[in-house]
């Protein structure tokens, strides 16, 4: 399950104040499991804790008061569905109940390039994303979700991939500014943005630094510096203004993410 990771980030505390979270993946690391854990936290974990605190039985996911909008720019939506299923979260059934919505940009781009007419209004004929229209689409979806649910969470996977469609860095920054502005506009909203981060690519480096400065909590996912290990999948660094900083090692199991301190993998 994802509870160990959420606890490591300090998000299971009632006084957790991190509404804007940046997830940076370094090198060959893949941070999609962190996003799946956030989805689990929003849809199941938080409401379960609230129920336990009130001495109630565990709620069914359909009774959860938080809704999630996932914008996937690198992995397909099916990837996140499969990953979440392993954590015990059926996104297909949740989407039928309106608790979960997805915007698969990779699918939208490929559809627009294959077919003559654009499938989505935020993609032009050459396959470039129009970030202004994409923002309007995201905003209207979130506002609609907020009408029905107590809180909403926007998760954007690998935002750096939007640059590869031909969008300039300055436009991406404006897009992120507007997403940050939504946090003030929509009550009880949280924002999670992941990006790939390398020092070699100037655009990715700038985007990573920009996100780090703009967020309340930064989670960096990287591989082990010493190479591969059968006991450790990678390293996770946490830094936040209201969260204790820390370095953890993690191991991805079939249905669980195990977290431990460096050197404590065999314990």
């Amino acid at each position: 399950m994802a509870a160990a990771l959420i606890a490591a980030l300090g998000l299971d505390q009632p006084e957790a104040q991190s509404s804007s979270i940046a997830v940076l993946e370094k090198g060959n690391a893949d941070s999609s499991f962190v996003l799946s854990c956030f989805m689990w936290e929003c849809l199941v974990g938080r409401s379960a804790r609230e129920c336990r605190a009130n001495g109630l039985l565990l709620p069914r996911p359909s009774e959860s008061s938080a809704a999630v909008l996932l914008v996937s720019c690198h992995h397909s939506a099916a990837h996140y569905r499969n990953q979440s299923l392993k954590l015990g979260l059926n996104l297909t059934s949740l989407s039928q109940k309106g608790l979960f919505e997805e915007l698969d940009l990779t699918k939208a781009i490929s559809s627009s390039l294959v077919k003559s007419g654009c499938m989505a209004d935020f993609i032009n004929d050459s396959g470039t994303i129009i970030v202004e229209t994409l923002f309007s689409s995201i905003r209207s979806r979130l506002l609609k979700m907020k009408d029905s649910f107590k809180s909403v969470c926007l998760i954007i996977g690998n935002i750096n991939d939007i640059i590869t469609t031909g969008v300039s860095t300055s436009h991406i920054f404006t897009f992120i500014n507007y997403l940050q502005g939504l946090l003030a506009e929509i009550d009880c909203m949280s924002l999670v943005i992941s990006t790939h981060f390398t020092d070699d690519d100037e655009s990715e480096r700038l985007l990573g630094s920009f996100l780090k400065n703009a967020s309340d909590l930064t989670v960096t996912v990287s591989g082990l510096q010493t190479g591969l290990s059968k006991d450790v999948s990678g390293c996770l660094n946490v830094w936040g203004q209201s969260t204790p900083s820390g370095t953890y090692h993690y191991r991805l199991l079939d249905r669980q993410v195990k977290m431990f301190s460096p050197g404590a993998s065999s314990v």
Partner: peptide, 11 residues
Amino acid sequence: HDCLADFHGWI
């Protein structure tokens, strides 16, 4: 002045 709200007039 909250410049993140709607500086570029997108909304």
